[in-house]
Amino acid sequence: MTVCTGNICRSPMAEIVLRDRFEAAGLGDSVVVDSSGVSDEEHGNPVDRRARTVLAEHGYATGGGHHARQVTAADVASRDLVLAMTSRHARSLWDLAEQSEPVIRMYRSFDPAAQELREDELDIADPWYGGPHDFEVCLAQIEAAADGVVDFVRNELGVSSGA
């Protein structure tokens, strides 16, 4: 599960990119990817039109079935991997974790180029208040970490890259 603030920009963009990458890796039937937000402010809303536009421009199928929703403690406890878009989101997820011991990671920590960054520097840029360039930057950060997420999950599943 990918998690951002309102679940209309970063986390659904990451969800769409990851689904595409898992499908390309032959893991589309083995891995479920979803998204949510730490806030309920956008509850029920679709993916932001600017996010849909940049995804489509980069060849991703955006579909129309997404409805923003707020993450719950049950979500956190039931997921094998929860990917926070920012350190603030990660803190909110740990607060929800209660007695469970979920695997919560910063999404961008899977970007090989970001390995030297401190956790507080791993935030995926929030494009909400920006223009098309900000959505491009956000998508580039998401794409840069996506293969690392796929490799991590493949390893957790015990599946070789040739499978």
Rank of each mutant, 00 (worst) to 15 (best):
A68V: 14
A68H: 11
A68R: 08
A68G: 02
R69W: 03
R69P: 01
Q70P: 04
Q70I: 01
Q70F: 02
Q70G: 01
V71R: 13
V71A: 11
T72S: 13
T72P: 08
T72I: 13
T72F: 15
T72E: 06
A73M: 03
A73W: 01
A74L: 15
D75W: 02
D75N: 04
D75A: 05
V76I: 04
V76S: 04
V76Y: 05
V76W: 09
V76Q: 06
V76F: 05
V76P: 02
A77V: 04
A77N: 06
S78W: 00
S78V: 03
S78T: 07
S78R: 09
S78F: 00
R79M: 03
R79D: 03
R79S: 13
R79G: 00
R79V: 00
R79N: 11
R79A: 12
D80L: 08
D80Y: 12
L81H: 08
L81R: 11
L81Q: 09
L81P: 09
V82P: 05
V82F: 05
V82R: 07
V82N: 08
V82Q: 04
L83E: 09
L83T: 13
A84S: 15
A84G: 07
M85T: 01
M85Y: 12
M85H: 05
M85C: 00
T86G: 02
T86E: 08
S87F: 10
S87R: 14
S87I: 07
R88Q: 10
H89T: 00
H89Q: 09
H89P: 00
H89G: 00
A90T: 13
A90P: 10
A90F: 05
A90R: 15
A90S: 14
A90N: 13
A90K: 15
R91W: 14
R91Q: 15
S92M: 13
S92P: 02
S92D: 14
L93W: 07
L93P: 08
W94G: 03
W94C: 02
W94R: 15
D95M: 13
D95G: 10
L96D: 09
L96A: 07
L96M: 11
L96S: 06
L96I: 07
A97V: 03
A97Y: 01
A97S: 12
A97R: 03
A97K: 01
E98N: 09
E98T: 04
E98M: 06
E98K: 14
E98C: 06
Q99I: 05
Q99P: 00
S100K: 11
S100T: 10
S100N: 04
S100R: 05
S100A: 15
E101R: 11
E101A: 08
E101C: 02
P102Y: 03
V103K: 14
V103R: 12
V103D: 09
I104V: 14
I104G: 07
R105K: 12
R105A: 05
M106C: 04
M106A: 01
Y107T: 06
Y107M: 07
Y107C: 01
R108N: 05
R108Y: 03
S109D: 06
S109V: 01
S109T: 08
F110W: 14
F110Q: 10
F110L: 00
F110N: 07
F110P: 06
D111A: 03
D111V: 11
P112G: 03
P112D: 01
P112Y: 14
A113M: 11
A113P: 06
A113I: 11
A114I: 00
A114T: 04
A114W: 10
Q115L: 10
Q115C: 00
E116L: 14
L117W: 15
R118V: 11
R118S: 12
R118F: 15
